[in-house]
Amino acid sequence: MSTAELDGITVAYDDLGTGLPVVLVHGHPFNRTMWRPQAERFSREGYRVITADLRGYGETTVVPGKTGLDVFAKDIARLADRLGLGRFVLGGLSMGGQIVMEFHRTYPERVAGLLLADTSPQEETEEGKRVRNAMADRVLAEGLNPYADEVLTKMVSPENVRTMPDVAAHVLGMMRTTPREGAAAALRGRAERPDYRESLTKVAVPSLIVVGTEDEYTPVSDAELMHELMPGSTLAVIEGAAHMPNLEREAEFNAVFARFLKEIG
């Protein structure tokens, strides 16, 4: 693990391999270890893979209050500057995918390729705003343990929880160890997320959209919408995975990601 002091916070990150830089952004309420299988494989195959804990998550500084997607995107830009990255492939899952969309909207010239996994481009609904802010209040009061237990079989399909106990334990462990103040701040920020559909129509770099067939949070229809909006994008639907196809179906996910990276160079 390495750390960087960026705008008053300490960011924990891993920087593995050499070659075309690939920055992978984790979702909520996880940390950079959700990308460990991809970081380990692709850093051996000629890519420089960077994974960082977002502010409020993992081993990065917790900032209470409200953290918008724009703040997360700026943190990624600052870390990229610190690491000497010009243009790079940028990927994210769930909230991480929305951070990627915000980054592309703000810094399109820095993006060499996009990976959007199990995510959605629409702005938050009024009901969604209420639910996210209520959940923020709840995790501040209770911590993440009750929430983690409730949502495990949505993050990882019930069948995969049964047959892949190591994956289930990894996902549950990430959720349970997320700082409550960081999770709540991100929930409040996501409640105010904008609509990214228009900016996706302007994507002019190779793009890969991935979704699990069993995903209840961001269903296949959301992925199909992004595919329609993004000229020349590739859509990969992963059978038997829920919200975490990179862990639930590691081989299948890595295969489509490898083909995508080879197309970029």
Rank of each mutant, 00 (worst) to 15 (best):
G96D: 05
T3A: 08
K202E: 15
A4S: 12
G8W: 10
E142T: 14
L261M: 09
M226G: 02
L83C: 12
A185R: 02
R41L: 15
V62M: 11
A80M: 15
P29V: 01
G173F: 04
S43Q: 06
D70Y: 07
N254M: 12
E239I: 07
E126N: 11
D118T: 01
V49Y: 09
G17Y: 10
E127S: 06
R188Q: 07
K154Y: 14
G8D: 10
K154D: 11
G232N: 09
G65T: 07
V256G: 01
L20T: 15
L16W: 11
A80L: 14
L144Y: 05
P146E: 09
S233Y: 05
R180W: 07
L247Y: 00
A80G: 15
D14I: 05
K74P: 01
Y57T: 02
T234S: 09
N246W: 00
S157H: 04
R44K: 14
D75M: 07
A251L: 10
E159D: 13
R105I: 08
A141S: 15
R48A: 10
E45S: 05
A255Y: 02
A136Q: 01
G58V: 03
G17T: 09
T234Y: 02
V23Y: 13
A251T: 12
L200R: 06
G97P: 03
H227W: 08
S43E: 03
P245C: 05
G173W: 04
A77I: 01
T18Q: 15
R259N: 13
E159G: 07
F103W: 04
S43D: 08
D75I: 08
G19T: 01
V161R: 00
T163W: 02
V256R: 04
A204Y: 08
Y47F: 14
R188C: 13
Y13R: 10
E127W: 07
T33I: 06
L93W: 00
M226K: 03
M244K: 00
I76F: 14
A183V: 13
A136F: 02
D195P: 11
L79A: 10
L6I: 15
A186S: 14
Y217K: 09
P165I: 11
H243V: 00
E142P: 11
E239H: 13
I264C: 08
A169K: 11
A236R: 06
T125S: 15
H170F: 01
K66C: 13
A52Y: 14
R180A: 15
G240K: 00
R190H: 06
I76P: 02
L225K: 01
A168E: 00
S233A: 15
L140N: 11
F30N: 04
E159V: 09
T10E: 15
T119E: 00
E181K: 06
A168D: 02
T234W: 03
S207I: 06
Y147D: 04
D222N: 12
E216N: 10
L225S: 02
V111A: 13
K66Y: 08
T218L: 01
P21L: 04
W35V: 06
A112P: 03
V131N: 14
M175R: 00
Y13D: 13
P121L: 09
T201S: 12
P158N: 13
P29E: 02
F88N: 05
A73M: 07
S157N: 03
G68P: 07
A73V: 02
P108I: 06
M95S: 10
L172Q: 07
E239W: 09
G8E: 08
I50W: 09
